[in-house]
């Protein structure tokens, strides 16, 4: 049996950690932003989650959309910054 020594073709990985934004202690009373990327059923999924959370989140929610092919524009981000937490749905 001939043994050959070969180089491994799989690269090392390097990821960059970013600290998460501070969260509210509880969801009760929090204002939640819902960001829909407009792919099919992303909005319906958000609706379903929002319905589950309705009892907790008593503040009026903010619903925004973004194009799935690009980052949310600054105007959308500015609105979302007024929220305590944001949920983005990314559909297939």
């Amino acid at each position: 049996m001939a043994i050959v020594e070969v180089l491994v073709p799989v690269a090392a990985t390097r990821t960059t950690a970013h600290p998460l934004a501070a969260r509210p202690a509880r969801l009760a009373g929090a204002r939640i932003g819902w960001l829909d990327n407009l792919k099919a059923n992303a909005g319906a999924l958000l609706d379903g989650i929002a319905a589950q959370l309705a009892a907790d989140a008593v503040a009026p929610a903010l619903r925004m959309t973004k194009n799935a092919t690009a980052a949310a524009p600054e105007a959308v981000m500015a609105h979302l910054r007024t929220c305590d937490a944001v949920v983005l749905a990314i559909a297939d």
């Binding site: 049996m1 001939a2 050959v4 020594e5 070969v6």
Partner: peptide, 8 residues
């Protein structure tokens, strides 16, 4: 880069 030995 890492290496391994295998049966050719």
């Amino acid at each position: 880069t890492a290496t391994i030995k295998v049966d050719a």
